[in-house]
Amino acid sequence: MRTLMIAITIAVLCPAGQALAWWDEGHMQIAYVAYKKLTPAARDRADALLKLNPDYANWIAGAPEGQEKLYAFVHAATWPDDIKMKPDYYDDQVTDSTARQLVPYGHLKHIYWHYKDALLSADDTPLPRPDPVDAVSQLKLMIAKLPANTDASEALRSYSLSWTIHLVGDLHQPLHAIARYSAALPDRGGDRGGNEVKVTAANGETLPLHFYWDGIFGGYSSVFGAIHDADAAGGLASVVPDAGKAQIVDPVTWAQESFDLAKTVAYAPPVRADKQPVELTREYETNARDLARKQAALAAARLANLLEALLR
């Protein structure tokens, strides 16, 4: 219940944006599994960049001796969500002139960078134009800045890396790649990736569908807890992604995959296209957990392959 209350609090504070994909636990597990796949040279380069993040000292506080680089990398996965709660960071809009700009550790939250909402009509409800700035547009910019042979500053590369670790996870959460419109939800944003759709899970909690998917790996965790869970029997570290798919490092493809999975799995019956709560079936919850594990493992493999190429 505590996890649900924290999530609801954040949703109230950030009503215009999506919920936090995978929450801390999921993002940290993805980062940890990816880190284990990186070569020592890529790890060192990542750490050199992450040291420029203003929260680096907090990330490594309490880390076991010799594990500081690992802890920093894993904790960096939650930084773009952490700033949503910082009092010196400010809300901005996708229509602002600064929406596309990568400003090294500027104080804008950029909540709309966390998702790529492809629009879907459930019943021929007219669709608005999609937003021009989103997770895909910004991640492509960040990827272009990360190699050492670009004209980007080290601060900009650091900022881009902090966001990249996070956004790769975001784009593999199906409900961060879709917004469904219907006669019951016709306004700008539609169901906002399931945020406006209520479901009741097997534990008896009634919560937004988006929150249900974000919380599949658990709620708000420590680095130690996320590593422990990933390495546990049957944990994320044991999931082997498709080797061919793992080589795909194109954010456009990732978003399209997640959009397709949202249509076929996240919005599968008994989920409705209106605000009437429904009780999830055992089949739905089993399929959701299985897909989430596959998507998270794929995100980790793709993140590792992407950073290995960019940070050489």
Rank of each mutant, 00 (worst) to 15 (best):
M1K: 08
I6S: 02
V12K: 00
V12N: 02
C14G: 06
P15G: 00
A16R: 05
Q18H: 09
E25M: 14
Q29K: 07
Q29R: 08
A34M: 10
Y35S: 07
K36N: 11
K36R: 15
T39S: 15
T39I: 08
A42K: 14
D44K: 15
L49V: 03
P54N: 07
A57R: 12
N58L: 12
A61W: 10
G62C: 07
P64D: 03
P64R: 04
Q67L: 09
A72Y: 09
P80V: 05
D82A: 10
D82M: 11
K84A: 15
Y90S: 12
Y90N: 04
D92F: 06
D96H: 14
D96G: 12
S97M: 09
T98L: 13
Q101F: 09
H107V: 08
L108P: 04
L108Q: 11
K109L: 11
Y112W: 04
Y112V: 00
Y115I: 01
K116G: 02
D123F: 10
D124K: 09
P126W: 07
D134H: 12
S137D: 05
A144C: 01
A144P: 00
T150A: 13
L161Y: 06
S162Q: 06
H166A: 09
L167T: 05
Q173Y: 02
P174D: 03
P174V: 12
A179T: 02
R180F: 02
A184L: 08
P186L: 08
T206P: 01
T206R: 01
P208L: 13
P208K: 14
G215H: 05
I216E: 00
G218N: 04
F224I: 03
F224M: 08
H228Q: 12
D231Q: 03
S238W: 08
A243P: 06
A243K: 05
V249E: 00
P251F: 15
K263M: 11
K263W: 08
V265C: 11
P269G: 15
V271M: 10
E279K: 13
T281E: 02
T286S: 13
D290R: 07
K294W: 04
A296S: 10
A299H: 02
A301Q: 00
A304I: 15
E308P: 04
A309E: 07
